[in-house]
Structure formats: structure tokens, C-alpha cells
């Protein structure tokens, strides 16, 4: 299996002094569906943001497809980011824009500045956007304003937007945390589809263990900025669960 991401001894100290990541190391291989679990504040979001450099790691290295991307910047950084899609808990769409423009925004990294600002997307881009909306099953909403859609639909738009990048790696930061259980499951199925059918490697932060067991091919667990578990989802038994989430925690079921 080909390695797609290599993270070594990653530290992140925020300017406020919070030491959010304390020497995290792991590898990700092509085609994996890696799920990151851990309590609130354990550093999951920080970890994902350090991978595509929305946050600057304080020390350590991140290698993407064999290349050290920890210190690249400018055009080079933008070209690497093109290959790494990201989906957020709060969807982060441009609310006042139509769905189709939100999806097209995923192509910005490939476009020249002037045409993109004028909204001059080539016809094949628009076709691709429609195709991606079709993949997530909301083609008929293409010309609605993004904030008119429900949460689940907005998250599907966000997935379509990231697909426009033709990503090799997709980062998803608690993509279903603000959705109801049924919608959560259907969104996770789209991630599975992207992973299995389009062959995109996925790293996904999740809270619910039932979703983890169902979709993850491998799991790492963070606690206070350190990896405390790494393995297959089947290995997370009662004992591990208490280690990761604390003694008082009890598993809740979500289907």
C-alpha cells in the first residue's frame, strides 16, 4: 500500500499558550478511511488543520505523498492544498451565494485570479459541478441560495465543493456533529462512497463510536494532544473506551 501522509512528532502550541498537540506521529495509506476520535478539546481539529496548514505546526513534520510540506508556502502551498479537500462541522458555505457557486469555489485553486473573480468558470467546470452535486444527490438545488438548504443538504454541498478539487485526501472535521442521527448516517454514506468509489483517502474526526465502527477502516484516538490508541475499530472494547473517554463515560448508541 502506498503511503499518502506521514506525520512525525507534531507539536502545536497556540499563541494563548495551549499545547494542543504533543508529539503526534502516524501514517495514512492510500484508500484508507481513518477516523480520529477523542474528547472535546483533545486536539482533533488542530490536527486536521495542521495537515493542510490552516494552522502552522509549531514543530514536527508533515509529509504528503512523500514531500515535506511543513514549511512550504505561497504558490507551492496552494498547489498542495488543491489536492487536500476539507469538510467542516459548520459546513462553512458562502451563505448568500447559490449552491452552484459554492461548489465552483472548490475549483479556485486551479483558476486564474481574474476569471475566478469575474465568475467566468469554463463550461466544463460547471458541468463538473453539476456532476458532483449529482453524486451527493442534490442536483435539483443547484440554483438555490445555500442558506436556504437544510443542514444535511448544506453538508452535501460542502462535500461536492471539496470534490471539485479532485482531492487525493479528504479531511472531515466532525462533519455530522450538528446533524440528527438519520441525516448523520446518510452523510457518512456519501463519505463512504467518495472513499470506495472515487478512491479518495479520508481522515475524519468523529464523536459517535457506532459511526466509527461502521465506517472506519482504522482508528486513532487523541487524548490531551497525544495518541493513546491506534488500531482497528473492532479493538475498541470497554477498557479502551474508558481509557479514551475517561472513567465516567458511557457509550451511547446511534443508528
Amino acid at each position: 500500500m502506498k503511503q499518502i501522509l506521514e506525520v512525525r512528532n507534531l507539536h502545536k502550541v497556540y499563541p494563548s499558550g495551549t499545547h494542543a498537540l504533543k508529539g503526534v506521529s502516524f501514517d495514512v495509506y492510500e484508500g484508507e478511511f481513518l477516523v480520529v476520535i477523542g474528547l472535546s478539546g483533545s486536539g482533533k481539529t488542530t490536527l486536521l488543520k495542521c495537515i493542510n496548514r490552516l494552522e502552522e505546526p509549531t514543530s514536527g513534520t508533515v509529509r504528503f505523498l512523500g514531500e515535506d510540506i511543513t514549511h512550504i508556502h505561497g504558490k507551492h502551498l496552494r498547489e498542495v492544498r488543491r489536492n487536500i479537500g476539507m469538510v467542516f462541522q459548520q459546513f462553512n458555505l458562502i451563505k448568500r451565494m447559490p449552491v452552484i457557486n459554492n461548489v465552483l469555489a472548490g475549483k479556485l485553486g486551479y483558476m486564474k485570479t481574474l476569471p475566478s473573480i469575474l465568475g467566468n468558470f469554463p463550461p466544463e467546470c460547471i458541468q463538473e459541478a453539476i456532476k458532483n452535486l449529482e453524486i451527493v444527490g442534490i442536483k435539483e438545488y443547484a440554483y438555490e441560495r445555500a442558506d436556504k438548504l437544510s443542514g444535511g443538504q448544506q453538508q452535501r454541498v460542502a462535500i461536492a465543493r471539496s470534490l471539485m478539487q479532485s482531492p487525493k485526501l479528504l479531511l472531515a472535521d466532525e462533519p455530522v456533529a450538528s446533524l440528527d442521527p438519520a441525516t448523520s448516517n446518510s452523510i457518512m454514506q456519501y463519505f463512504e462512497k467518495v472513499n470506495k468509489e472515487l478512491g479518495v483517502t479520508v481522515i475524519c474526526n468523529l464523536h459517535f463510536l457506532s459511526l466509527v465502527r461502521r465506517y472506519a477502516s482504522r482508528v486513532i484516538a487523541l487524548k490531551n494532544g497525544e495518541i493513546v490508541f491506534e488500531g482497528s475499530p473492532r479493538e475498541i472494547d470497554e477498557k479502551w473506551f474508558k481509557t479514551i473517554y475517561g472513567e465516567e463515560a458511557e457509550e451511547v448508541e446511534i443508528r
Binding site: R81, G85, I94, S162, Q165
Partner: peptide, 14 residues
């Protein structure tokens, strides 16, 4: 949204 657009590889003006 700034994070989301940055993550697509867009430049500052975009």
C-alpha cells in the same frame, strides 16, 4: 468560510 476557501488552494484575492 475563510478556512473553507483557503483549504481549496485559493489565493489571497480569491
Amino acid at each position: 468560510p475563510v478556512d473553507a476557501i483557503t483549504a481549496t488552494g485559493a489565493n489571497k484575492l480569491q
